[in-house]
Structures are given as C-alpha cells and as structure tokens.
Design a protein around this nucleic acid. Structure first.
Length: 370
RNA sequence: GCUGGAAUCGUCUAGUGGCAAUGACAAGAGACUGUAAAUCUCUCGCGCUUCGCGCUUCGUAGGUUCGAGUCCUACUUCCAGCA
C-alpha cells in the first residue's frame, strides 16, 4: 500500500507526504505534465532546479512512441527520462475524450496512431500492462470521459469507468505479483457536475480500495468546490487524491487544496508559456505585447526563478518576437516555477495556519479584485 | 541615347474592363485546464451610428468607357539589353 502521511489537516484540507519508491512528494504539490516523458521545452535538471517534485507522463503517448517495452528495458520512466524522482502515468483515458476517430466499446478503445496511422487498441487490462512496463510509481485507472456534459452521458461514462475500474484493479493486482517493484493504482472518480453521480462514483472508487484517487472529468472550474466537498468527503482521508488536469488558473489550485486535493497536474503552464502568456503575482501577462518592448524590469520582480533573476521583459519580448527557442525555455521555466511555488506556499500556509490569509491576498492581487 | 520591361496596403505579391482590390510575411490583439498545441483565432486604407454606410486608393497627369489597378497618350522613376 502506498504510504501517505498527513502532517496537518483542517477540514478537508491537509498537508502531507506521499512516499514513493522514487522519493517523497510533499503535498499539496504541483506535478509537471511530461506527456511524452518530457516537460516540453525543459530539461529534467531545469525541472529539479525550479522545484518540481514529480512528473506525470501519458500512457497513450508512450504506447505510440517509444513503446512501454522500451521504457521497461531502460529501467522505467524515471530512469529512462533521467528524472530520477517520483513519477505518475495517466492512463490514456483522457484521449478517448479528446481525440477524434476513436471507437469505444465495452471492451476498450480502438484508434489510429496519429504518428504512423497504425491501428491501436487500449483496454483497462492493456493500459495497466503498459503502465507497469513504463514503471511509473503511480498509475491512473483507465477511465472514460463523457462525450457531453448531459446527465445521461455523464452517467453512462461513469458506469463504464466503474466497470473498467474493476478490471483495472484485477489486472493491477495480478501484475503487482509479477513485478518486483512497487507500483500503485489510483482509481479515477467521474460524474461531471452532478452531485449524486460524483457521490456514487466516489463511493464506488473507495470500495475498490485503490492506493489513491484521481478526480477526473472537471471541465469547468465553476462548481468545483462543491463537487470536491462531495467527493473528498466520501473518499478515505488516509489516501492521496490527485486533481487531474486542473491548474491553468491559480484559483483552481487554491480551491483544490482547500477541498482536500493533494496533487495537481496541468499542461497549461507550459503550453501558455510557449505561446507567450506568463504568470505574475499581478496576473497574466502576454509578453509579446508591444508595451514590453522597452521594459527592462524582470517579468516578476518577486520571483526567484532563473528567468526572472537574470532576464528582463524587454529581452523576453525580443526572444518571442524573434521566435527564438530560448523564449519558450525561459517562459516555461518561469510558468512551471510559478505554479509549483504557488502550491508549495499553499502547503507552507496550511502548516502555518495562514492558508486563508495567503489565499485571500494572492487571489485579490492576481485577479485584481482588491 | 535607342529598344524592351516594370511601378498595387510596412515588405514581397495576385490581379488583363465591374475590387477596397489576392496571398505570404511583418505588425496589433486574443485564446489555451489529465498536450495530435513550437498551436489556433481575430484585426490589419480612412471615418462613422461597424452583420451596414460614406469617403479616398494600385508612380504622376490626361484620355477612351456606363464603368479603368486593368485599355490609350505623355511624363517620372527603376530594371535589362544595345550603343
């Protein structure tokens, strides 16, 4: 069983430590999205230097290339990528929802590789097998997102996710006997914005007795607090919870932590960075805007990342306008650092009993609502 | 000097009788939440009461025509070849 220590808690909110075979994660923590086993534009050293504690790769992408068996040969995801720290893999379930031309049956999912055109099939069992071969410390169950936000579609997706979860758990238990390494399974809670479905899903996932939980299918941040109250009120307190895919908006991280989520992952910080949108304590900035052409101040004067410590807004502006690779590197370092540190400070504030003060000050300043 | 050819939005460019005029780049702005994202969208002559209307535009000045960026004449500039 995955070891998770809660150091301090208040209501649903808590600060703790997840002990993985590749090291500890002090929670709440922001996990870097390393879809294809790399955080786009960043080296693993840069990720470590900016303070990241863990990364999350995607089984779907790694099946297409370079293949789970190759990663297994390399010694596993952490070794293959030279991350050497705690790792997660997402199951590939999200791709069912996000990709065109997928055929979904009760058995699993069929799709064509966007890389080669080859036909692939994923089932709960094959996702588990792939994740064990990839060798991340924490695996997500192969879930099914709804095709729309309607109640009927949500319920259908949830029910299928539950049936698949039983198969995932069975396969996971089987594989855990074949492998010498410790690897852990998170069940994924579905149910959209419907309270009764979320409650039902949380209950079902809890009864499966996985090592932790992913909370998936969050499309809109509106209503997320209520949803998390329901879900995390039901999930056992002693197991870690990962809020899947949320973190573009800093407020989502505060809401998530306040309502009992321990880890987060989101592609937005690095994606936005590549596109020139950068976080600052005073809100988002599009560094490509003409007004930064002669701004020789740091992007965020209070930030201690490599980018803000060494470069000016004018320089970043120039690099982006010139379409230089370094623009994306520096911007990604900054944005990833920003969200990682924001969550680290949430942890500190939980431990210091200053969460509300930190949250209120941060959000008022970031969203300029003072 | 002669003979050809060319002049269109910041730049390059489409356009051969019905066009405020094509495309690319540049420029300006926006989006992005378990990444087919180094992507995508919008604006880009001027002014308004902006799903519309009114002006002014294709080197300059005239002309032909219901109508000219497109045809004709002259001029200006540039390019090529020949002296």
């Amino acid at each position: 069983m995955l070891k998770f220590d809660i150091i301090k808690s208040k209501g649903l909110m808590r600060a703790g430590v997840i002990h993985t075979p590749h090291g500890d994660i002090k929670t709440p923590a922001f996990v870097g999205a390393a879809t294809k086993s790399t955080v786009k534009a960043l080296t693993m050293k840069e990720m470590r230097d900016l303070g990241s504690q863990a990364i999350l790769a995607n089984t779907y992408h790694l099946i297409l290339a370079p293949g789970p068996e190759l990663i297994k040969k390399a010694g596993g995801l952490a070794e293959f990528s030279s991350w050497h720290g705690p790792t997660f893999t997402d199951s590939g379930g999200f791709q069912i929802f996000s990709l065109p031309d997928v055929k979904i049956t009760e058995d699993g999912v069929k799709f064509k590789s966007y890389l080669s055109g080859d036909k692939f099939e994923m089932t709960p069992e094959s996702s588990m097998q792939a994740q064990w071969a990839i060798g991340a410390d924490i695996h997500m169950a192969f879930d099914h997102l709804a095709k729309s936000e309607s109640y009927d579609d949500m319920e259908e997706a949830m029910d299928r996710t539950h049936r698949w979860l039983e198969r995932c758990k069975k396969e996971h238990d089987k594989l855990s006997k074949e492998y010498e390494k410790e690897q852990y399974l998170y069940a994924v809670v579905q149910g959209g914005n419907f309270d009764n479905l979320r409650a039902k899903s949380a209950e079902f996932c809890k009864n499966i007795e996985p090592d932790g939980f992913g909370i998936g299918g969050v499309f809109v941040a509106d209503g997320m607090a209520e949803m998390l109250k329901t879900v995390n009120g039901i999930l056992p307190e002693c197991k870690p919870r990962h809020l899947l895919g949320m973190g573009q908006e800093p407020i989502d991280l505060f809401v998530g932590a306040e309502h009992g989520c321990d880890t987060f992952d989101c592609v937005a910080p690095t994606r936005m960075a590549r596109n020139g949108t950068l976080y600052t304590l005073d809100g988002r900035v599009n560094i490509k805007n003409a007004k930064f052409k002669e701004d020789f101040t740091p992007l965020d004067p209070e930030c201690d990342c490599e980018c803000c410590q060494n470069y000016t807004r004018a320089y970043l502006h120039h690099l982006f306008k010139s379409d230089e690779i370094t623009a994306k590197v520096l911007a990604s370092i900054h944005n990833e650092h920003f969200v990682v540190k924001t969550v680290d400070k949430i942890r500190d504030s939980i431990l210091n009993d200053t969460f509300e003060e930190y949250r209120n000050n941060f959000l008022a300043r970031y969203y300029n609502t003072k």
